[in-house]
Write a protein that binds this DNA or RNA. Structure first.
Lengths: 111, 111
DNA sequence: CGGAATCCAATTCGATACTG
DNA sequence: CAGTATCGAATTGGATTCCG
């Protein structure tokens, strides 16, 4: 999280959202989790440019911010499942809006 | 812009939007510009934590991405006005969604 | 007024290798 | 399978000063 939430609040609620969601891959992860629970390596395959270190970090931060729930099963081989909290599901309108805006931007960008 | 648009596109349109809009202050600047044209130092006062270097950089990047229009008037003292392009105005739903989401997050964060 | 220049601190991100 | 450890490169943000 680049800007501490306290400081972002001094300026604008928009900036709070950016500081929580702005990390690379974070909203893409949320998008995939909106479709259902996923395991660690599943998410890794869905976001192929993220390496394990980065993936772990983003998921941990999302967890700390109450957006993602992490459930670990004491099995061999290990199984860890990620899902959205209620707060995470409340991001659906933002994710959908950014998905379509990003698609349009990319279209203009190519042309 | 952290991740090049071309690479973001390989993964997800959401990531394109994040790479274009994710910089600190960028969406806050867009929010203020949604209310009308603003001059450089006006924006500086509206985003008091950003110094001139950062402010200039973010505005330039938004300009390069076709979101902000910069108009310079050959006067003394100089006057430079910033406004949104059509593409910039199309961000209104995202900005509003993030504004209310950020406000709720900050509320829970305090409590 | 609207920046540009300089210098520096702090993140952040990635590649790679290894592990319980 | 689901990470952790280490290292290093790169980006980024900030403070300050100066300028036409």
């Amino acid at each position: 999280m680049r800007l501490p939430v306290e400081r972002a609040m001094e300026v604008c609620p928009v900036e709070v959202a950016v500081s929580v969601l702005g990390g690379t891959w974070k909203l893409t992860l949320v998008k995939h989790l909106l479709a259902g629970t996923r395991r660690f390596n599943e998410l890794g395959r869905l976001v192929p440019l993220a390496n394990t270190k980065t993936l772990t970090r983003q998921l941990r931060e999302l967890e700390e911010d109450g957006i993602v729930r992490r459930t670990s099963y004491p099995e061999v081989p290990p199984r860890v499942e990620y899902s959205l909290t209620e707060s995470g599901r409340s991001l659906e309108p933002i994710v959908k809006a950014m998905d379509s805006w990003g698609a349009e931007f990319a279209e203009r960008y190519k042309g």
